[in-house]
Amino acid sequence: MTIAVAMKVNGKAVSGQVEARTLLVQFLRENLRLTGTHVGCDTSQCGACVVHINGKAVKSCTTLAAQADGTEVTTIEGLARDGKLHPMQEAFREHHALQCGFCTPGMVMSAIDMLRRIPRPDEATIRHELEGNICRCTGYHNIVKAIQAAAKVMGG
């Protein structure tokens, strides 16, 4: 069956008619062409697909588009305002917390959610909280540094 879904994505109302089996990440990438949200695995572990639903980080590869119907979704494309990077994006750039860039959108979305819940995490907490995100390039060292730096800027 197909179903109608409607939601707010990055502040804009969007809608579509999709197969019931459509995942949120497919709806974002294929219907809305918001290809910043990536798919790196099929077992809900890599975190490349993390977006926010109603302000909370979720894996959009393990959420049906139907489950996001009526919600507010924020993706990596919705963070920068008027060409100015979000402090977390800025911290990732400043601290070289990305290399190939593929896990980066999920990392940034997860990191923002982390600071929402834990404003001033220590290193061990950051490392533990990154349990749902895999990066194969950076060795995590600079990601940890970037999140620590962003926590200071974001006033936690």
């Binding site: 910043g36 949200t37 994006q89 593929f102 980066t104």
Partner: peptide, 10 residues
């Protein structure tokens, strides 16, 4: 290269 990767524009 970071701007495009950080804003989902890669």
């Amino acid at each position: 290269e970071d701007f495009r990767f950080l804003t989902g524009q890669g």
